[in-house]
C-alpha cells in the first residue's frame, strides 16, 4: 500500500482553468474527502487520477508508478478503481454481468482457452463468479443479482456502481458523489458500505461528496477546492474552522 500523491496539478480547458496548482496526498487505508462548491474542479481532479484527463502541468504518483499520462485502463490495472457520478453502468446487462466484467484484467486465460472453455477458462470463470458473489454479499445486492441494471431504482444503481468498482479489488477506490440524490435511508446504507470497505477491504478511499454532514462524520482528512484552487485541508475539525472554507460555502459578512 502506497500513498497517492498529487503534486502541483494544473488542468485547463482552453482559457478555463479547471485546476491550478493542486497538491494533495492520500494516505493508505484512510478515507479522504474532496469537497467544494459546484464547479470547483472535484470531478476534474478525479478524472485526472483515473486517466480520463491528463493534467497540463504537475504529476500524479501512486507509489513509484506515474499516473499522469496513463490511460484509464492502465490506471485500472494499477489497482485504482472508480465509481462514476452519473451512473456509467452497462444498462442492458444484469447486475451479475456488470460485476463479472469488471474483473476483465484479473482473469488469466487466453483466447484459445476461452474458445474451448472446458478446462482453464471454466475454472477461472467459476472462481470469478465466486469473487463477484462475495461482493454481492458485501454490498447486499442479492435480490437484484439477475435483474437488468436499467430496471433498478436509482439508489440501487448507485450501489451497483460502487459494487462494480469494488469487484476490481482496488487498493484505491475513487467515489464520485456516491450519495447524490439519495434519501436519508439510502445515504445511511451507503455510508455504512463506505466505512466497511475501508475497514474490511482495507482500501484507500477518495470521496467526492456534497453532503457536508456525511463528509465531516466519516473522513480522516478533507481537502477543499474552490475555483480549481486548494483553499484548505486538514482534519474535519480544522477544515470546519478554516475562514476561507467558511467564506466559500457561506459567504462573507
Amino acid at each position: 500500500m502506497h500513498p497517492l500523491i498529487i503534486s502541483d496539478v494544473t488542468l485547463t480547458f482552453g482559457g478555463l482553468k479547471a485546476l491550478s496548482g493542486v497538491a494533495m496526498r492520500f494516505e493508505p487505508g484512510t478515507i479522504t474527502s474532496i469537497i467544494g462548491p459546484n464547479g470547483a474542479g472535484k470531478t476534474s481532479l478525479l478524472n485526472c487520477i483515473s486517466g480520463f484527463y491528463h493534467p497540463d502541468q504537475g504529476d500524479i504518483h501512486y507509489g513509484d508508478q506515474r499516473l499522469t499520462d496513463a490511460a484509464p485502463h492502465q490506471v485500472a490495472k494499477m489497482g485504482i478503481a472508480r465509481a462514476f457520478q452519473n451512473l456509467e453502468l452497462f444498462r442492458g446487462m444484469t447486475v451479475l454481468d456488470n460485476l463479472l466484467l469488471a474483473r476483465h484484467s484479473k482473469l488469466k486465460y487466453n483466447l484459445l482457452q476461452a474458445v474451448v472453455f472446458i478446462g482453464k477458462a471454466a475454472r477461472v470463470e467459476a472462481e470469478n463468479r465466486r469473487t463477484v458473489e462475495e461482493v454481492i454479499d458485501f454490498m447486499e445486492l442479492e435480490p437484484y443479482r439477475k435483474n437488468t441494471v436499467g430496471t433498478l431504482s436509482y439508489g440501487i444503481q448507485k450501489r451497483v456502481e460502487v459494487a462494480r468498482a469494488l469487484t476490481m479489488e482496488p487498493q484505491v477506490l475513487l467515489l464520485d458523489e456516491p450519495m447524490a440524490g439519495m434519501n436519508i435511508e439510502e445515504k445511511e446504507d451507503m455510508v455504512r458500505f463506505v466505512m466497511d470497505i475501508q475497514k474490511e477491504r482495507n482500501a484507500t478511499i477518495i470521496l467526492v461528496e456534497h453532503d457536508l454532514g456525511v463528509v465531516m462524520d466519516i473522513s480522516d482528512r478533507i481537502h477543499v477546492l474552490d475555483f480549481g484552487e486548494m483553499i484548505g485541508s486538514g482534519t474535519p475539525a480544522e477544515v470546519a474552522r478554516n475562514p476561507k472554507v467558511i467564506e466559500a460555502y457561506i459567504g462573507k459578512e
Binding site: 483515473s50 480520463f52 442492458g92 476461452a114 474458445v115
Partner: peptide, 28 residues
C-alpha cells in the same frame, strides 16, 4: 463459449459504454 468468458463480455461492454469499459481495465 467465447461469449461466456472475458473475451465475449468485453465486446458487449465496449458496445454499451466504452468509457466505463475503459475504467474497467479494457482497452476500448
Amino acid at each position: 463459449n467465447l461469449m461466456r468468458t472475458r473475451f465475449g463480455r468485453c465486446l458487449i461492454a465496449v458496445r454499451d459504454n466504452d468509457r466505463a469499459a475503459d475504467a474497467m481495465g479494457m482497452h476500448p
